[in-house]
Design a protein around this nucleic acid. Structure first.
Lengths: 226, 226
DNA sequence: TACCACTGTTAATGCGCTGTTAATCAAAGA
DNA sequence: TCTTTGATTAACAGCGCATTAACAGTGGTA
């Protein structure tokens, strides 16, 4: 679902390039070049974010912001202006604006600021990022769970740490010392024995899938194939 | 309930007056003048907003922001700096910062920006209207009541806070430290013992429904199943 | 001022889980 | 063959947790 942005700006060449850039970023842009049209548009539309040039002929950006706020206290508003006077910044913020970018601005900065506010207005924060796949298994790291088609096995923190580390380095040879330093924080002989025990346990958990294997590289370390 | 702000700034005279102003606004300020101390503080505390000076001796504001983001993607971060270089602004925003104020700044602007972000982080949690269901129970949070088909048990504020937090994170593993920081504001050994007592009390309240359970994840935290 | 009710913290006790260690056997390399 | 390295299982010590009870701080009330 594309975010829908209102962009009010009277400078034709600037608005062309900015709009182009924003659409390239995947936003849906409604642009208009004067305040009166903007007021018409906001009557019948809702947006996810508004970018308002302050210096417009006739009806300025502040006025548009006031109108928007009469019906909507939520939508983020970013002002755009050539002036960088302190008083203007404050005025914009007091009207219920959220940020203030002075021209000339970099498009990258504008995009980043847009994302800051869109991020905050969304309730959905998919936490699937911390999920790791190997073979038929899925490691749900934050929940310390190893899932395989329906069933779920709960792991201890260290088991999950180690398995995550192995999956992150899947199909590569990992030295014993690297694992120990990363998971246990240090590397000595006895921790090496512990590591062996953990590898053994993980092998047991993973043995339902023949294609997934923790191989030993003699004298070096391990490799998770999968 | 006062908003709790972290303010990291090494300029003594500036931080004094700024802190003074912010406290006058009704914020609770935790100030420190160097990065190392800041990193210690964020380990055991959560804040509603962070204001970080970028130019600090040894550990800079960007580094602090990175550390904060490792555990918390939500808290707004405002950078404060003498430099107004485009690259710095973009760098800060990419790290997960929310805004960038260049010195010298007016205290009024800072306060307005703080309010912008505090307002938005509260909008994300429109809790007062929400009622929380788990199993056969319904938590009426504003009234501190736990209802189950007709009968009602009244809770203390902290009991309700904790239960609300658990329900919001239902079926996910929640770290002890996360709970403590969220409900108690900080994380130390003795508060951990208190948490255990509260968990025990909640279990008693919830035991009428077999399908609802607060599980312990050894060495990690808890999970409310239901 | 003394008393009581209510909350949240601290203390005490016993149980259970986790990670380490030990012991034994198997595999690999010299 | 002999030595080193790894695999697996079992047992153990210590820490983390659950629960109950006692305690301290707060505010209300007579």
């Amino acid at each position: 679902m594309k975010a829908h942005l209102l962009y009010v700006e009277d400078d034709e060449s600037l608005s062309f390039v900015t709009r182009d850039n924003l659409e390239l970023q995947g936003y849906q842009i409604t642009h208009c070049d004067n305040g009166a049209t903007a007021l018409e548009i906001i009557k019948n539309n809702t947006f996810d974010l508004c970018i308002l040039d302050v210096m417009l002929p006739e009806i300025d950006g502040f006025t548009i912001a006031e109108e928007i706020r009469k019906n909507n206290n939520e939508v983020p508003i970013i002002f755009l202006t050539a002036k960088s006077l302190k008083e203007d910044k404050i005025h914009g913020l007091k009207l219920g604006g959220d940020d203030y970018i002075t021209k000339p601005f970099s498009i990258e900065e504008l995009i980043l600021k847009i994302e800051v506010f869109l991020k905050r207005s969304k309730i959905n924060i998919p936490q699937e990022l911390a999920s790791y796949d190997v073979g038929m298994f899925n490691l749900d790291y934050p929940n310390l769970a190893l899932n395989q088609n329906g069933t779920s096995k709960s792991l201890t923190q260290k088991e999950a740490d180690l398995l995550k580390y192995l999956i992150e380095n899947k199909n590569a040879v990992i030295k014993r010392s690297a694992i120990l330093k990363s998971i246990w924080g240090e590397d000595d002989y006895f921790l090496g024995r512990s590591l062996d025990v953990f590898i053994s346990r993980l092998r047991k958990y993973l043995k339902a899938d023949e294609t997934v294997k923790i191989e030993n590289i003699h004298g070096v370390g391990f490799r998770l194939k999968g």
